[in-house]
Amino acid sequence: MSTHHTHHEFEPKIIAFVCTWCTYAGADLAGTSRMQYPSNVRVLKFPCTGRIDPVFILKAFQQGADGVLVSGCHPGDCHYIAGNFHARRRFAVFRKLLEFVGVDLNRLQFSWVSAAEGGKWVEVVTDLTEKVRAMGPMTEFKELAMEEQWSGAINTPELKEAYNAI
């Protein structure tokens, strides 16, 4: 098998929240089938997509993820019957909220990958990695974490002067 190592200026960090029954097994199949996919993805295994709290996605972005993937069983295939149906509604709403707050939704991908879809896993991960690579690093949340401002910016000349005098 030929491997091409292309050097990129920017290697995005992709966090993948996956369900153990379908997508994790699908990623495993991709591995045992020796399919190549970007090593940018960090896989976190959950019992079910229904266990994946929107706050995890927020935390991932805050801790430096450039892209987030959430993946689980196809509708109707949930090991717990309805976990992915609930997750579908929750994430449909959550992505609207993130969009309204100003997060670029191209960094957030949802997918259904079954245990037999090793190829689809490769495709989803590659697509997201390349898309995020083209977009560059996610800076918004990192900048927030760097900021020390407490309540309101020091934006008047008097305040700035007083601040500088300290």
Partner: peptide
């Protein structure tokens, strides 16, 4: 009460009240 925690709090708050 810094920007990172504030943003997270308000997003979580809105999400927990959705619906």
């Amino acid at each position: 009460p810094r920007p990172a925690g504030n943003t997270a709090w308000h997003i979580v708050r809105a999400m927990h009240l959705a619906g």
